[in-house]
Amino acid sequence: MERVMSLASQRAVVIFSKSSCDMCYTIKTFFKELGVNTEVYEIDEVPRGREIERVLARLGLRPIVPAVFIGGQLVGGTNEVMALHLSGSLIPMLRQAGAIWL
């Protein structure tokens, strides 16, 4: 758990992803189009990726990826990010985390 939380707090926006996941690709593209510089960990390609996957599962993520952290806090997956965006809460959250300056 400590390793995941440490990785999640290294940048304003951190995404745990799998290289073959379509929704992961979608969420990474979405943040890129918003001008957010994310840190992405492809858990199927990094050492100890299975351990990260188990931790994300323990955090209650279903599906496990994409797992988005903003300002070191777990936001959730694609559905949660899109719900925040549609409600108008995502951009202020990204500003507060220092991810964007718009």
Rank of each mutant, 00 (worst) to 15 (best):
V13D: 08
P66V: 04
S20E: 08
P63K: 06
T38S: 11
L90E: 01
V36I: 09
L61M: 10
L56K: 10
M1I: 09
R50D: 13
R11P: 05
L74T: 02
I64F: 04
A8D: 03
L59A: 07
A97F: 08
M93A: 11
F69C: 06
G60D: 10
V4D: 04
V36N: 07
M5W: 06
R3P: 01
L56P: 07
I91M: 06
A8Y: 01
L56N: 07
V36H: 06
K32A: 14
G77W: 00
I27V: 14
V4K: 09
G77Y: 00
R48F: 13
V55N: 10
M82N: 00
S87I: 00
R62T: 12
M5A: 10
L102S: 13
A83E: 11
N79Q: 09
N37G: 10
E33W: 13
M93F: 01
I15Y: 01
L7I: 12
L56E: 09
V55E: 15
S6K: 14
R48Y: 13
L56T: 08
L86G: 00
T26R: 14
T78G: 02
E53I: 07
R50G: 15
I15L: 12
R95C: 09
S87C: 00
F69S: 03
N37I: 14
P47L: 14
M1N: 10
M23F: 15
V55H: 07
M82A: 00
I64T: 12
S19G: 12
P47Y: 13
H85W: 06
V14Q: 03
S19R: 09
D22T: 12
C21N: 08
E42L: 09
R50A: 13
R48D: 15
A12D: 04
Y41D: 06
N37F: 11
G35C: 11
I27N: 07
